[in-house]
Structure formats: C-alpha cells, structure tokens
Computed example of a mutant assay.
Amino acid sequence: MFSQKVAQQSLRRLAVQQPYAMRSSLMRASPAAVALGQNIQTRQVTSSPNTEDPTQILVKQRLRRPIAPHLTIYKPQIGWIGSSLHRITGVALSGTLYLWATAYLVSPALGWHLESATMAASMGAMPVLAKVLLKSTLALPFTYHCMNGLRHLMWDLGRGLSNPVIIKTGWTVVGLSIASAVGLALL
C-alpha cells in the first residue's frame, strides 16, 4: 500500500515538473510493439489460499457492516406519516375492491348470496352501533385517501411545500377525513 502511494506521488511530481517526459516515454514503443500488445502494462495477480465457501464470504462481510439507523432516529412528523398512510390506504382500498369484486363475480358459482338485496337486508338486521362501526371502518381510509390525495395534487403543482404549510395541511387532512368519515357512517 505504502509503495503504491510513493509511486503515485512520484509520477504526479514527474507529470507536473516535466509534462512531456511521461508522454515521450509512452511514445517510445514502436507501432509493431503496440500492435502486438507488447507495451501493455501488467500487474501481478495475487491470490490467497482461501478454502472458505465463496457464498459464505459475502455473508460474513455483511455481518460486519454497520447498520444504518433508518427510521429509528427520526422524530415522527405529519409529512412523512401522512404520505405513508396515503400509500397504505391506497393499497388497502384497492386490495379490498379487488377481493370484493372477485367474490361478487364468483359468488353465483359458489352459491354465495352477495347481491344487493341480500346485502341491504343483512345491513338492516345489524344493530346501530355495529352499522356505525362497520361504515366508519370502511369510510375512514376512503376519506383520508381522498383528502390527502388532494394535498398531494397541490404539492405536484408546487404549492404548499414549506414546513409550516405541510404541518397545517396534514392536520387539516386528518381532521376533515375523520369528520367526513363520521358523517358518512351516520348516514
């Protein structure tokens, strides 16, 4: 390692003091030597008598690497929590829609009764508290995703990207989505 640094430093000094000296030393090779590849610099191949399993070398190296603290060092903020919840509610809503649509399509073949009249009758037979809880559970992700989607669209237009505005709009989205979810659940 030390000898390489010394060699590099001496080459740099030579290049600075005599810039044409290095160029002329490279140009001494004849065209035939260049064509035959005889002027190519080579280095010694080093190998170690390693008898370890090659797949385990990388595993051992990974165990010695430092681990980044990731999310554990950050104070939770409304900006990144809101964006994370926006993604989570989007996945939950679309996953629920796909499951429901698939069940609705295969229900006649399986003998299930998922038609509108059956669903309305089963909802009507539920106690009021169960209805409100079920509708709130379905309405809250929907209203949050809609309200926060408007916030993200505002950000896409380049508006409201300062920290105070992000905090205000984040808590506004939370309040409006809870209020609208409760309003939908009480219908």
Rank of each mutant, 00 (worst) to 15 (best):
A7M: 11
A185H: 02
Q18P: 03
L138M: 07
W100Q: 10
L138P: 00
M1L: 01
L93Y: 00
V45N: 08
L58F: 14
Q38M: 06
A92F: 13
D53N: 13
H70R: 13
V45M: 15
W112I: 01
T169V: 12
V128W: 07
K60E: 12
S84T: 02
I78W: 11
L186W: 10
V128S: 05
V59G: 03
T89K: 11
S25W: 10
M123S: 12
L93C: 00
M119Q: 05
V45E: 09
Q77M: 07
A68N: 03
T96M: 09
T51H: 12
L71F: 14
L99N: 11
A92H: 10
H145L: 07
V59F: 06
S116V: 14
T169H: 14
N163H: 10
A130I: 03
Q56D: 06
L71W: 14
I78G: 10
I73P: 10
V16C: 02
L58Y: 08
L71C: 09
P19L: 11
S94Q: 07
T42F: 11
L58G: 15
W100D: 12
A130M: 09
L85I: 05
L186H: 11
L63F: 04
P31C: 05
Y144R: 02
G160C: 07
W80T: 01
S180D: 08
S94L: 08
S116G: 01
P164A: 07
S83A: 04
L105Y: 10
Y144A: 05
S162H: 13
S180C: 10
M27G: 07
T172R: 07
A33M: 04
A15H: 15
A120T: 09
A7L: 12
G160T: 08
T55Q: 04
D156I: 02
T72H: 08
A21F: 08
V16K: 07
A103W: 12
L63Y: 03
L157C: 11
I40A: 04
Y74L: 13
H86W: 14
S162A: 14
W80P: 00
V106K: 03
G170L: 09
D156V: 02
V34D: 13
K135L: 03
H113A: 02
R87M: 05
L157Q: 11
P164K: 08
R13C: 15
V174C: 04
L71T: 15
H113W: 06
H113L: 05
S47V: 01
L186F: 11
Q41L: 09
S30V: 01
T137M: 08
S25L: 13
A101E: 15
A117E: 09
R23N: 02
A109N: 12
D53P: 00
G124F: 05
M126N: 06
Q4R: 05
L85R: 10
I166M: 13
